[in-house]
């Protein structure tokens, strides 16, 4: 058995995932939560080409953060930008070598600007406790 196949989009070696609340392209409102956010936007920071995917974990009975983090791993994401990040999701991202940054502003556009200006805060540790994203 070989290792897990990873979906790498051809020609892109760097992908950012941003948690968002609505599907409105670059003007989408960013989400403060990770595991149960509405959508993920996958962006190539060079070209600003993006795709949006509904979060399959948002209504999970439990372990939403783990499932969402697994989605990041499976999509070979390099960087995750979210309002907050809980301990289990953080552990999965950390083990996969995915860097996590905190963004608490408004839109994807602003988040990308902040990323390019290197003003985002690194989430070296989870910043909220488990189940913080539950409604």
């Amino acid at each position: 058995m070989t290792s897990r196949p990873e979906k790498v989009i051809k020609g892109r070696d760097m992908q950012i995932a941003i948690t968002i609340e609505e599907n409105k392209g670059m003007d989408s409102k960013t989400s403060s939560i990770f595991g149960r956010c509405e959508y993920f936007m996958f962006i190539d920071p060079e070209t600003e080409e993006f795709t949006t995917e509904e979060n399959p974990a948002k209504n999970a009975r439990g372990g939403a953060g783990i499932q969402a983090a697994q989605l990041m791993v499976d999509n070979a994401i390099s960087i995750v930008i979210s309002g907050h990040l809980g301990p289990k999701a953080h552990a999965v991202l950390f083990n996969a070598g995915i860097a996590a940054y905190q963004f608490q502003g408004r839109t994807v556009r602003e988040a990308l600007e902040a990323y390019n200006e290197k003003t985002l805060t690194s989430l070296f540790e989870p910043d909220v406790s488990a189940h913080s994203g539950q409604a």
């Binding site: 897990r4 439990g62 083990n95 996969a96």
Partner: peptide, 22 residues
């Protein structure tokens, strides 16, 4: 463990993830 991810796939409760090949 080869990190194939079969265990995470069949887990109904999201108790398993595969990251960094394990």
């Amino acid at each position: 463990c080869t990190g194939c991810g079969r265990c995470a796939e069949v887990c109904e409760y999201n108790a398993i993830a595969v990251a960094g090949g394990k």
